[in-house]
Design a protein around this nucleic acid. Structure first.
Length: 577
DNA sequence: CGTACAGGTCTA
DNA sequence: TATCTAGACCTGTACG
């Protein structure tokens, strides 16, 4: 029934091990399909087997333990299958996430979409991400019931094999699937969190925890100061109209109540008002209620959604992992005898741009720890700040101002790199699809999840609006190729790192060994026994090198890391980008 | 009454 | 002469 394709990803340099695929060793694929009545259908190697859902963890655990190589588990959604396995203490080496892979293949320009048609194709297309819930073996949610993983797997493998971009798409799908494993594992393990430290911080800044619905004491006193200085006794500072009116009455002319606008005003109310806003934000987004909801058993467990944004970057739908505020990072503290190894890539996207455009001049500037300084040393720009402005302008599509002027000058110096983003922008303006290095396609012009996407009044009839829209889409596609390829680099990085950490030692479960606890675009946090700190730091660095050679093969681009070994996340050194 | 949006603040 | 990318999430307010 199942079609066997040896999906071997050749790794040309380094020993990066993205999908857990070792060179030359064909992997056995085992497809898991949910059947009615709490049953699971296992297929693969031409065999079929039906087992009760409850038996799955032990079955998977045995295959993972050996003696032979662990299979690649093929399932509809990692977020649906993996949390229960983790809860049962079972770690999986490799998988193929059919939902994520299908989204990639559906949009990939290099894939023949017809090869993805067939039984239940529309249901596969509509499959949304499983919501992270309690790690029980499936709830009442049966949206994926009856979907045959083996049938879909065969379609996807055929589509990849037939594509001119097959090697790259194969790598992308493997990396994406590994990322999904890492995401589930990070939510499972969680960031070590000292609630007592967090609460002490809250009490210090806000006062004791107030009863439900009330403001904490120091927040209320900031509000009182504002009311007094504006002579507005009943003012609710949370209400924009009220606040704006009160400011005007006091002779303060501002168009909005943003902190940056207020800072420009010379008036004694500014200080308490800014203080109020800062404290209110802390109270509302990372206060006691946040602890209640997102911290359990000493761990902060945000939920990640791999490829949640169009570019392939992860998004988050709970816990706010994407805006993990600096202010409370001091509560992220390693366990006794353990450390946090925090690593982030310096200037990821400019480096990725140098690699994908094979711009030798920019790659030369990227040699070393500071790409912007490299551009200065190269004589391309006068200052580091100019280099940064120019590069960011090129990647974001700046046309005016200081940034826009820098772009013009740098285009002559780095024609390949700047030409690549320019071409992506022009393609987007023409309404064409662009792709990342590994072949992820951008959403079509009308289909972007924007505010105007559909409805009878969708196409603006005036030409100005239409033109603005096309240019905005051009800026989007311009950024898409770089941000998306950056996301692919990061995916390869954590996929490889995840396996390196597992091999690093220990015999226990995932959270008894060095393991990933946090990932955010270009930064990772590993929780590890103190005596393994140096080894972890080395693996993090080697994984970064491996990711570079996976993406750019023989074209040399440096990806230097800032690595800190710390007790508390707040102590991690973060040199500016 | 519930939902949608606007405006704000945080992140890379 | 001008807003230069991608997100989450909170509140108050307008709307159906």
């Amino acid at each position: 029934m199942s079609v066997q394709h040896p999906t071997i990803i050749r790794v040309d340099q380094g020993r990066a091990d993205v999908g857990g695929v070792r060179e030359g060793v064909p992997m056995t694929r085992v497809q898991l399909s949910r059947l009615p009545g709490d049953l699971v259908l296992l297929t693969g190697d031409g065999e079929e087997q039906t087992v009760p859902l409850d038996d799955l963890p032990s079955l998977v655990g045995e295959r993972e333990a050996g003696p032979g190589p662990a299979p690649r588990w093929v399932w509809d959604d990692t977020a649906r299958w993996y949390p229960p396995l983790l809860a049962a203490g079972v770690r999986v080496t490799r998988c193929h996430d059919l939902r994520l892979a299908r989204r990639i293949l559906r949009r990939a320009p290099a894939v023949d979409a017809g090869l993805l048609d067939g039984d239940d194709a529309d249901r596969w297309d509509r499959l949304g991400p499983a919501v992270a819930t309690e790690p029980t073996l499936f709830g009442a949610d049966d949206t994926a019931e009856h979907l045959r993983a083996d049938v879909e797997d065969a379609r996807q493998l055929a589509a990849i094999a037939a594509s001119a971009d097959g090697r790259r798409l194969g790598l992308l799908v493997a990396a994406e699937s590994s990322g999904a494993l890492a995401a589930a594992e990070m939510t499972h393990a969680g960031v070590p969190w000292r609630t007592d430290v967090h609460e002490r911080l809250l009490v210090e800044l806000l006062g004791p925890r107030p009863p439900r619905g009330a403001r904490p004491r120091l927040l209320e006193s900031a509000a009182d100061d504002v009311r007094r200085l504006l002579a507005a006794p009943g003012l609710n500072p949370d209400s924009r109209p009220e606040l704006l009116a009160a400011l005007r009455r006091a002779g303060i002319e501002v168009d909005d109540t943003r902190a940056s606008s207020l800072r420009a005003v010379d008036h004694e109310v500014v200080e308490p008002l800014l203080r109020y806003k800062k404290l209110a934000h802390l109270f509302q987004t990372n206060g006691w209620a946040w602890i209640d909801e997102w911290v359990s058993r000493g761990r902060f467990r945000p939920s990640y959604q791999p490829a949640g944004s169009a570019t392939g970057r992860w998004s988050s739908n709970g816990g706010g992992a994407l805006s993990f505020p600096m202010q409370v990072r001091s509560a992220a503290v390693a366990d006794e005898g353990w450390v946090l190894v925090v690593a982030d890539v310096a200037q990821l996207e400019p480096r990725v741009l140098a690699g994908m455009s094979r711009d030798t001049a920019l790659a030369r500037a990227a040699r070393g720890a500071d790409l912007y300084q490299g551009m200065v040393d190269d004589g391309a720009v006068a200052t580091r700040q100019d280099a940064k402005l120019g590069l960011l302008g090129a990647m974001y599509g700046a046309t005016s101002g200081e940034s826009g002027r820098m772009v013009a000058g740098l285009t002559r110096r780095y024609p390949a790199a700047f030409g690549l983003v320019d071409e992506a922008a022009r393609a987007g303006e023409r309404g064409q699809v662009v792709r990342t290095l590994l072949g992820r396609g951008s959403p079509a012009l009308g289909a972007s999840p924007g505010r105007w996407q559909e409805g009878p009044d969708a196409p603006p009839d005036d030409l100005d609006a239409l033109d603005r829209r096309r240019r905005a889409h051009g800026r989007f596609t311009r950024n898409f190729v770089v941000q998306g390829t950056g996301a692919e680099w990061a995916l390869c990085w954590i996929a490889d790192l995840r396996n390196r950490l597992w091999r690093l030692g220990g015999a226990g479960e995932l959270d008894e060994r060095p393991h990933l606890v946090f990932f955010l675009h270009d930064e990772v946090v590993v929780h590890a026994p103190a005596e393994l700190a140096d080894a972890v730091a080395a693996e993090v660095t080697e994984a970064a090198t491996g990711a570079g050679s996976l993406l750019f093969r023989d074209f040399p681009v440096d990806f230097p890391l800032n690595v800190s070994v710390v007790a508390s996340y707040a102590d991690a050194g973060k040199p500016g980008t």
